[in-house]
Design a protein around this nucleic acid. Structure first.
Lengths: 120, 120
DNA sequence: GCTCTTGTCAACCAGGTGGTTGAGGAAGGT
DNA sequence: ACCTTCCTCAACCACCTGGTTGACAAGAGC
């Protein structure tokens, strides 16, 4: 069993599943409803839904013989948080590096020593 | 060939690769350097790096016999934008739904007609 | 010119993924 | 009761993935 974050990323790595999620942001849909635009069997769509469900992105409730699919958008926050946390760290480092480079230029050393500055 | 957004999501769907990205936010690393903490062969790490590179998350420059790996954090914005766009749409809909539900309660109809309201 | 270090490439393997078809379960309509 | 609609489960398939090992390319150091 893999962690949820991995499952969410993996679930959204497929264009068909991303499109389903996109459509589910606007309204709940039944399986057949969801499947209509895609040129694959209903069973294939059902499988995609299972992937989204295992990732926690979607819930299927029973309603007569229909199984309306509902988006659980909060799970997206898991990803946003991970991404933002690391993007911010990266940006801070790049900002710091820019500072160092600016400092180096200010010093105006006569022998620029092109490479070797990337260590930390 | 698949689109970049799919490749980025897929790249981050692996915990080892996410950890590499996390470490690369703090400093550039060589391949062997990156591989050290993981209990897999250097070749496996090299493969992970290739996945990250194909997704545009990372660049490898040549420096003597070493190949320092550098994070390209801007690509993360691709994902953030996709996620935020859809999360916002979903939230708007839920807010609208809450409004409808509140309205329904205010009206206090004797026959609530549970379903059928999901069309748009 | 050897040798050591660093990393990639190629071949292979087990297991997962996304698709198919066929069978069948669960509710509603008649 | 029976049929129809909506959907899932099971088996099968081709291909991808993440790991392995072995060979080898590219530079640095002697």
């Amino acid at each position: 069993m893999v962690d949820q974050l991995s499952r969410v990323f993996a679930a959204l790595a497929d264009p068909t599943r991303r499109d389903m999620v996109a459509r589910l942001t606007e309204a709940d849909h039944t399986v057949g409803d969801l499947a209509a635009p895609y040129d694959v069997s209903l069973q294939a769509v059902s499988k995609h839904l299972k992937v989204l469900e295992d990732a926690g992105l979607v819930t299927r409730t029973r309603q007569a013989q229909r199984r309306p699919v509902h988006l659980e958008a909060e799970v997206l926050d898991l990803m946003t948080k991970w991404i933002e946390r690391h993007r911010r760290r990266a940006e801070e480092r790049f900002a710091a590096l820019d500072g160092v480079l600016a400092q180096m230029q200010d010093d105006e050393q006569p022998h620029p020593t092109q490479q070797e500055g990337t260590a930390s």
